[in-house]
């Protein structure tokens, strides 16, 4: 599971418990992945555009993959997705939805707005790790 260069994953998630799960999985199993976590869509956009508290480019490197929750305050996951996929530079970054929702509508919306993948959160940590492994193999 080693990589020549460390890849950067941006995780957008407002639920601390869920954010912790992802952080622990990366720490324990993906040593060559650097994880950045932001708890809402607005902050994540600031990061991508390197503005506000993310003005320093060295502290806000361009991610290789974005993991995105759908249900968030202020700017929802879908809105964030739409903005990223409309940006001629940012749209190249793969965005994978990571959500508890298995509604057909959410999946269809994600597809419409240009998501590159759709993962449903599992209640089993090992299974989640395995899912992340496949994800990284496909996108990183």
């Amino acid at each position: 599971m080693t990589r020549e260069t460390a890849k950067i994953i941006l995780h957008v998630e407002d639920e601390p418990a869920h954010a912790t799960i992802v952080r622990m999985a990366i720490q324990r199993h993906f040593s060559d992945v650097r994880l950045r976590q932001i708890d809402d869509g607005k902050g994540a956009l600031d990061y991508l555009y390197q503005r506000g508290s993310y003005e320093d480019p060295t502290k806000s490197p361009r991610p290789d993959l974005i993991l995105l929750d759908l249900r968030m305050p202020r700017i929802s996951g879908l809105e964030f997705l739409a903005i990223v996929k409309k940006d001629s530079v940012l749209k190249a970054i793969p965005v994978v939805i990571l959500t508890t929702s298995d509604l057909v509508k959410d999946r269809a919306d994600a597809n419409t707005y240009g998501a590159d993948g759709y993962l449903i959160k599992s209640g089993d940590f090992d299974e989640f790790v395995k899912m992340l492994d496949e994800l990284c193999a496909a996108w990183l």
């Binding site: 639920e15 418990a17 869920h18 799960i21 249900r71 959500t99 508890t100 929702s101 509604l103 959410d106 959160k121 599992s122 209640g123 089993d124 940590f125 989640f128």
Partner: peptide, 12 residues
Amino acid sequence: HDLKSPLITVKT
């Protein structure tokens, strides 16, 4: 969705 989210938390 919304009830599922804390349940996943509990389970994980």
